[in-house]
Nucleic acid binder design. Structure first.
Length: 575
DNA sequence: GCCGTTTTCGGCCCGACTGTTTTCAGTCG
């Protein structure tokens, strides 16, 4: 993904927000919003496109194309600068609070001068919102809850953002003469769902050239500490990155140490102590004479301790050390194991890429089968109809004969408050595979939500429950269902639970994957792509699945297509 | 501001929910 597309998309997004905060034409704001999405999901690097080529991107006309050119020529866009001068950045930050949109943010700013999340919290605490039109006691309460939700992720980045930064820096440091090895470690290597700091590890005899290159990277906004062994910086987007340089002989120990987790390392060091060894970031040593045991790789370190190498995604002290001691580590599913994607969208509903573009990218990524699952008709904003769905199917069938990748026609159904879905059995029978997801009524009671999900599992045409908890990291809490009851129903009915790869969803979360696996549930690692760019998120879903200890037998999208078809057919036959 | 045409102007994704109103605005998906 070209970074330029993300930068431009972020600028247009900001302009759209500023337009709606200042009460400009709603349609204008919406167009900038749509253009931002289209550019973020566009396959070509916008920095290389001229005015005419830019205007071929959907929702980009003359005016927006000129603004993009202006940005690449001058480094800024005047129209945005003008609005920035009027509205403090903190006011826009307020709209990140769930339940607080542009209109209310503007009222808070104009009436009370509130221009930050902290300021809002203080004002609520002091009762200063009382009497403000549109802000009753319930609203104040909801805003406080929204702030809490937002704070839960404060200072942490989504995994795709952190990964992009890490890979850029690893690439740059690796190219410095004298750099013997370089990689990222820490929670990013463990594929945690959100990332606090990015940890980069390098090996070199002389650290100075690496440190020099590091602090000079264009992405670096501020140097926090600068030393011989460790340098910390903050990037232009506020992410802290630490670079540590170690001698090559200690690489294995250092990588093990800096990958963590802390809890995992405590367990590992206990094992070292019992063997008369000492493990630290500087290496593995004999306690008696303090001599360094050469441990150039992690495999060496674990082997010296009598353990099989433990994949980073398992290193959370959730039983992996005992499993390694017993030689019972799971054979985790890997990215090359994934054969298909069963949850994707096109521009027929809310995707930004065409069917052909999605298929071409999926093929290029090596997928063996691919399901198109645009939204079903009960999500009104998507304006799906029976006729549109059937036409898409016909179109897909015509394409199917052209390629080596097998094409499946599916849909993402909406699970309504009672657990029913959009179409009756006759219509559903025409799909090859169906995902069903909760998209509304998140606040039902746990009993209602549980019954709703169980009923969806019991539908013979529902093969996968999409993003089961519906959480959006930092924005929306997971729904509150009796998951053991849901997983039991999924296992009983032959319904897979999704492992959604989208970075702000990552749903099911790892703890729930572990729980579901105990019920012998099957899983579908999907991307839920809305553009060709999103197909690259698959690795995050695989990382999440690994954190849930899944093997390729657990994952239906790692199965050969005939086995998957049997999975679908068996459920239909059983009813 | 974009788009599509019954083109150069008028429509633009639509419905539900929530909390606040006393008939509706704001937010969300």
């Amino acid at each position: 993904m070209a970074r330029a597309n993300e930068v431009v998309a972020a600028l247009l997004d900001e302009y759209a927000d500023l337009l709606s905060i200042t009460g400009g034409e709603a349609f204008k704001a919406r167009v900038y919003d749509k253009a931002a999405r289209a550019i973020g999901g566009h396959h070509a690097d916008v920095a290389t496109l001229d005015l005419a080529a830019l205007q071929k991107i959907p929702n980009v006309g003359k005016s927006i194309a000129e603004k993009i050119i202006e940005y690449f020529d001058s480094g800024q866009i005047q129209a945005i600068e003008k609005l920035r001068a009027k509205i403090p950045p903190g006011v826009r930050a307020l709209t990140a609070i769930p339940g607080l949109g542009p209109k209310k943010a503007m009222i808070l700013y104009e009436e009370l001068g509130i221009s930050s999340v902290d300021g809002l919290e203080e004002a609520i605490g002091e009762g200063r919102l009382a009497g403000l039109r549109g802000f009753g006691p319930k609203t104040a309460e909801n805003l406080l809850h929204g702030i809490e939700l937002l704070r839960g992720e404060t200072g942490r980045s989504l995994i795709d953002t952190a990964m992009a930064v890490a890979e850029e820096i690893v690439g740059a440091i690796s190219a410095v003469p004298g750099c013997q090895r370089c990689t990222y470690a820490g929670s990013l290597r463990r594929m945690r769902e959100t990332i606090g700091d990015v940890d980069i590890l390098a090996a070199a005899r002389d650290s100075k050239p690496l440190m020099d290159a590091f602090v000079r990277l264009p992405i670096v906004a501020e140097v926090i500490v600068r030393g011989e062994k460790k340098t910390s910086v903050r990037t232009t987007r506020g992410l802290q990155v630490d670079l540590r340089v170690v001698p090559l002989e200690a690489w294995g120990a250092a990588l093990q140490y800096f990958t963590g987790s802390k809890e995992h390392n405590v367990r590992i060091r206990e094992i070292a102590v019992r063997k008369g060894l000492k493990l630290s970031e500087y290496g593995l040593f004999r306690v008696g004479d303090g001599s360094l045991i050469v441990s150039e790789t992690e495999e060496d370190v674990y082997a010296q301790l009598g353990l099989a190498w433990i994949p980073p995604t398992l290193r959370e002290d959730r039983g992996e050390v005992d499993a390694a001691l017993a030689g019972e580590l799971p054979d985790l599913v890997t990215l090359p194991d994934i054969r298909g994607d069963l949850h994707t969208h096109t521009n027929l509903t809310d995707g930004v890429s065409t069917l052909e573009e999605m298929l071409a990218t999926a093929r290029a990524r090596g997928l063996r089968y691919y399901a198109v699952t645009d939204h079903a008709k009960n999500l009104p904003m998507q304006r799906m109809t029976d006729a549109k769905m059937l036409k898409q199917r016909e179109h897909l069938r015509a394409l199917a004969s052209e390629g080596r990748m097998e094409l499946l026609h599916g849909t993402e159904l909406n699970i309504d408050p009672d657990g029913d879905v959009d179409w009756d059995a006759d219509f559903l029978a025409g799909f090859d595979v169906c995902v069903a997801s909760v998209h509304s009524h998140f606040n039902q009671s746990p009993e209602e939500l549980t019954r709703r999900l169980v009923r969806a599992c019991e539908n013979p045409y529902v093969n996968i429950i999409g993003h089961p908890t519906t959480r959006q990291i930092g924005r929306r809490a997971p729904i509150d269902a009796d998951w053991d009851a849901v997983f039991a129903a999924a296992a009983r009915t032959g319904t897979a639970m999704e492992v959604n790869s989208y970075p702000d969803r990552l749903d099911l979360p790892d703890e729930l994957i572990l729980r579901a696996k105990r019920h012998r549930v099957k899983f579908a690692i999907d991307t839920d792509s809305h553009s060709t760019v999103h197909l690259g998120h698959l690795r995050f879903g695989v990382g999440l699945a690994q954190r849930g200890w899944l093997t390729k037998d657990d994952v239906i999208t790692a199965w050969p297509l005939p086995k998957l078809r049997t999975f679908v057919a068996r459920k239909r036959r059983a009813h």
